[in-house]
Design a protein around this nucleic acid. Structure first.
Lengths: 341, 341
DNA sequence: TTGTACGCGTTATCAG
DNA sequence: CTGATAACGCGTACAA
């Protein structure tokens, strides 16, 4: 790694002062034609590229924003990250992404790291699903930073939040199932007690009530593929020939829907002929399952974009919307069949 | 956003000098017990967290490394990114991830950005598959930085590289197919002219030659799911009842294998009964296809880890391996069936 | 054991 | 139009 040239090296070579070099780099038009030439050639010769950190220090900014997500390996987040990155780039920011693994302890550590790196703001998908109180220390740290929340709220602090209309999405999923003639709809639910899950369950129940359907049943699988797979593998044989047998399943996310699909393949239960399935999220590859999964799409890329836009406005003290709720969209594929009455 | 307290604020409040505060933060044991107390309580009171940037400036480092990948949205890379992040964190580095979208122009711009941000090193998955000459400007920039390459090499510069044994992986895939009794094996290939594709094709051909099999056939689908889907949809009906009909397909990546699977579902061709398929990569969800995909696993997480370890050693001028080749692993699932002779 | 002064690379400000 | 100087926040030699 060769020694990097500084603004002083360039100044010396061009026979001018550092300030002049700075001007040439940032506002060429205000410097005399021939000085500009001299400087430009010195810049080229030394292949000088300004040190953005040094430049930012007196301005008390970094042009970095932090992004805390549970796990980048979780396919659900990749589009979100990309949305954040793309908008950031447009505005000259860079993104520091970290994974909380849904651990509150890691989240706290990373928050501290981001603070010590003096990022200009943080986009946070709150870790852990617990409705626990937020640790005091972390909370006060948060209050000292520009924060935009994604998806989940925080007790004890108000911050702008970007989320998806979980209730509406679930509601429309179940409505769709009802429209297709299903009367016995099982809900494959996510992590108990999380707001997300509560909202989706709310949508499920509301749609049922609205249609005067009393039949309901909930299986819990923590938003996880394996868990859903196991649950179905255990549950289905028990109810196979009973009145309890649903004709359709509303899974609170695609991962669980795919887990269920996997179980049904093994159990030799035909989807959608014997049982229909609808998911939530529209993750990549949900169109490559067998059968392709009908699901409720979340605009993850858009969520990322909106979150950054809000954050950047927050940073520059412009007016912002405190609450942004994005709508979902029903994606009809082949995992739901019509049930004749 | 409240004003951030500095080491001076703490010093004043504790009635000591800034250097003493610095010592308490970085080497508490060398300062007298009661001074330490005073400082500690001032730190707590002001909830002081050191400014890492300022601290790093005189050291001429940032503890950032840059990671340039084609696209974080490409599921293949998420594990790699996580591997990089995890190792980085262990060593106190943070990662700045950017997407080149396989565009050389973007790659150049980002390289410049990373340089201006003075990252301590860069992990680079070279953009574009072209065997084109590298732009001179970019090359000289590269030479001024600590670089570790992933997967693809650069003409005109030697840098440590971490890659996977593509030849060996392809070879073992085809060997496996042969072992299962297949004699007509079609190769669903990736982007023509890329090293990766050449190596995998090499493995395919070698395995065939070694077994004295003359039958061979190659279809090109640019590593893309859609392209593979289209190719199969067009090709299969043409050869359906001819001698050209293969009994197995070796796809140069899982995406293409999944595309083929999709096509076969529509064409009502049974996999693996009528045709077997083996993929390459072992991307997430390759176990959730129908049937679950037999494939050659690439250790992507490990690649990320190795790359960072190499980079960190490069940065600290320790000895490094210039060339790290990782082995693949055959993952037997259900998309390949035995063919009786 | 503690304090002082300087350097890291840049830009804003003010003077010329 | 250009140059000098201070300031950003910290660590570190060196002095006390």
């Amino acid at each position: 790694m060769k020694k990097k040239s500084t603004i002083y090296d360039v100044a010396k070579k061009a026979g001018v002062s550092p300030s002049t070099v700075s001007r040439v780099m940032n506002a060429p038009e205000i410097v005399a034609e021939n000085t500009r030439q001299k400087v430009a050639s010195a810049v080229k010769e030394l292949s000088y590229i300004p040190n953005m950190i040094a430049a930012n220090m007196p301005r008390k900014r970094t042009n970095y924003i932090g992004l805390i997500i549970p796990d980048i390996t979780n396919i659900f987040f990749s589009n979100l990250v990309r949305g954040v990155q793309d908008v950031c780039e447009k505005y000259g920011y860079s993104v520091l992404v970290v994974n909380s693994d849904d651990s509150q302890e890691k989240e706290g550590r990373y928050l501290k790291l981001l603070y010590s790196r003096r990022v200009d703001g943080v986009i946070l998908t709150v870790a852990g699903y617990q409705e626990e109180e937020f640790p005091e220390e972390e909370l006060s740290l948060l209050k000292k930073m520009n924060i935009v929340l994604i998806d989940r709220e925080i007790n004890g602090m108000t911050a702008p939040i970007v989320k998806v209309n979980n209730f509406g999405g679930a509601y429309s999923a179940v409505k769709y199932l009802l429209k297709m003639g299903h009367k016995k709809i099982l809900h494959l639910a996510g992590i108990e007690g999380t707001k997300t899950n509560q909202e989706r369950r709310g949508g499920y129940l509301s749609a049922l009530i609205e249609s005067h359907i009393n039949w309901k049943k909930e299986l819990n699988a923590d938003f996880r593929l394996d868990a859903a797979y196991q649950k179905i593998m255990n549950y289905w044989p028990q109810i196979k020939n009973s009145d309890e047998l649903p004709t359709a399943i509303f899974a609170a996310n695609d991962l669980m829907a795919i887990g269920a699909l996997k179980a049904f393949t093994q159990l030799k239960v035909q989807v959608p002929e014997e049982v229909s399935i609808i998911g939530f999220d529209n993750i990549p590859f949900s169109d490559c399952t067998h059968p392709p999964l009908t699901t409720i799409a979340q605009p993850t890329y858009l969520m990322g974009q909106r979150a950054v836009e809000t954050l950047i406005n927050l940073i520059s003290k412009k007016r912002i919307k405190k609450f942004i709720e994005l709508e979902t969209e029903l994606i009809e594929r082949d995992s739901v069949s019509r049930r004749e009455v």
